[in-house]
Amino acid sequence: MAAGGDHGSPDSYRSPLASRYASPEMCFVFSDRYKFRTWRQLWLWLAEAEQTLGLPITDEQIQEMKSNLENIDFKMAAEEEKRLRHDVMAHVHTFGHCCPKAAGIIHLGATSCYVGDNTDLIILRNALDLLLPKLARVISRLADFAKERASLPTLGFTHFQPAQLTTVGKRCCLWIQDLCMDLQNLKRVRDDLRFRGVKGTTGTQASFLQLFEGDDHKVEQLDKMVTEKAGFKRAFIITGQTYTRKVDIEVLSVLASLGASVHKICTDIRLLANLKEMEEPFEKQQIGSSAMPYKRNPMRSERCCSLARHLMTLVMDPLQTASVQWFERTLDDSANRRICLAEAFLTADTILNTLQNISEGLVVYPKVIERRIRQELPFMATENIIMAMVKAGGSRQDCHEKIRVLSQQAASVVKQEGGDNDLIERIQVDAYFSPIHSQLDHLLDPSSFTGRASQQVQRFLEEEVYPLLKPYESVMKVKAELCL
């Protein structure tokens, strides 16, 4: 049975990233139509530049190519590739079939990587351009969430054990800070992308030097003109047959890092959902379990974690691919890159769409948070109580021993009897502590235990987050809708 299948058929496997999760716009960027249309555009740009620099290419040939950029006979191309065992030459023939007058000058002087690699770089750039505003929107939604809850005390956790208090907004800023680093890295790697350009079979530009009869300047002009037509500021000066596969490492490393950030955020949300302090959106008709109707599973956060793990592992592909590119190139890269580049971007696209949807509907339960604080705060307040007693004339050592005994009794009630923490009640009825009984409410005010959390939130948002989001103001209103 021949390899390949009808990918629109229910009898043929289709990647869930495309069929179930990723956005239509990201799927289109990695589609065959987008790819092969870009090949034709690159052939047109090459012909236009070659004509401008004096090669015998007519206006009629150029116009014929322009008129057929979208006229792609995919069936013919597939048949040609089956016959020739070469995808680029299959599309040269297919393009030439609908451009008979231009057929002889299509791909003039070029090698397969002229269309293959340059198209990949265009796709990487455009895919990054799709991700950047999506990530900015996630940051914006979380920034709104953090600002609104900047002063809401909550129990902090280290080692997932109760620690000092923080605020809900401050905790959210930990998430935002990681995503801001990801946004900066995505922008950097996007701006650092260079075009492969017009380089020939081993990167020496020998074929173009021959076409222009040894004119170095025209060869350099050709490279520059096509690079500018493709919208790049610069091209690699040095290439082998391909652009260095280190570029793929750079791009997928940034995406993998984004995956790590999203995994951490969504894990926190899942843990908070278990504590009943916070939940992701839950639709009115949504079913959490087929057997347990009360369940409210954090399905979206779980999906993000599941896909983020996949995204983090994909960076190993370009690392290994770059390491086995012998001399000017081997074909070890080809099949692998067809999979890992598309999957990385479709996965990143999915987790950003999902995280935006989550961040637009996060639900906080202040009463649950308050109750958990009441359970733990008495123990945390013991040092403040000791200091207040010393100020009232008591002995630190005597007070410490009193607190120690009462704390152990209260802990026994919590752990052995399943009761509430009654340390404060014990202190309130103990005559030894009568000098500070009137101060206990103040000493137990949760806001006095959150330090500068709310001020940190305000400063972080104003100095770091809002300036970073400013270039994306025009796209901030787009909502994230999930079908599944």
Rank of each mutant, 00 (worst) to 15 (best):
424 I>E: 08
140 S>T: 04
168 V>C: 02
338 R>N: 06
92 V>E: 12
88 V>K: 02
442 H>Q: 02
201 T>L: 01
479 K>A: 14
198 V>Y: 15
213 E>Q: 13
153 P>N: 04
398 D>G: 07
394 G>I: 10
346 L>T: 05
31 S>A: 09
377 L>V: 09
273 A>W: 03
278 M>T: 06
218 K>F: 11
43 W>M: 10
421 N>R: 13
230 A>N: 13
222 L>S: 11
120 D>I: 13
243 Y>A: 04
351 I>V: 06
404 R>Q: 10
263 H>L: 00
39 W>V: 08
359 S>E: 09
266 C>F: 01
361 G>Q: 09
24 P>H: 01
219 V>G: 03
125 R>Y: 00
407 S>M: 07
277 E>D: 06
181 M>N: 12
257 S>P: 15
34 Y>L: 04
453 A>E: 14
460 F>V: 13
353 N>W: 05
9 S>R: 12
200 G>N: 01
312 M>N: 08
184 Q>W: 12
121 L>I: 00
92 V>N: 10
366 P>C: 14
223 D>I: 03
324 V>A: 03
329 R>T: 07
208 F>H: 06
248 D>Y: 15
40 R>Q: 14
83 R>H: 08
427 I>D: 15
156 G>P: 03
328 E>N: 08
345 F>K: 06
373 I>G: 12
271 L>K: 02
272 L>H: 03
354 T>N: 07
110 A>M: 10
33 R>F: 08
355 L>C: 03
44 L>P: 03
466 Y>D: 14
7 H>S: 12
442 H>P: 10
330 T>M: 02
422 D>P: 01
437 H>F: 05
50 E>G: 05
456 Q>N: 12
443 L>Q: 05
205 Q>R: 04
410 A>P: 01
339 I>W: 11
391 K>D: 10
232 F>W: 04
15 S>F: 07
446 P>E: 02
210 Q>D: 05
59 D>H: 05
221 Q>M: 15
326 W>T: 06
116 G>H: 03
210 Q>C: 07
175 W>Q: 15
375 Q>G: 07
256 A>L: 14
470 K>R: 10
430 D>G: 04
401 E>L: 05
207 S>I: 08
345 F>A: 08
281 P>N: 10
465 V>A: 13
201 T>F: 05
229 K>S: 13
306 S>R: 10
177 Q>R: 10
7 H>R: 07
31 S>N: 00
347 T>P: 14
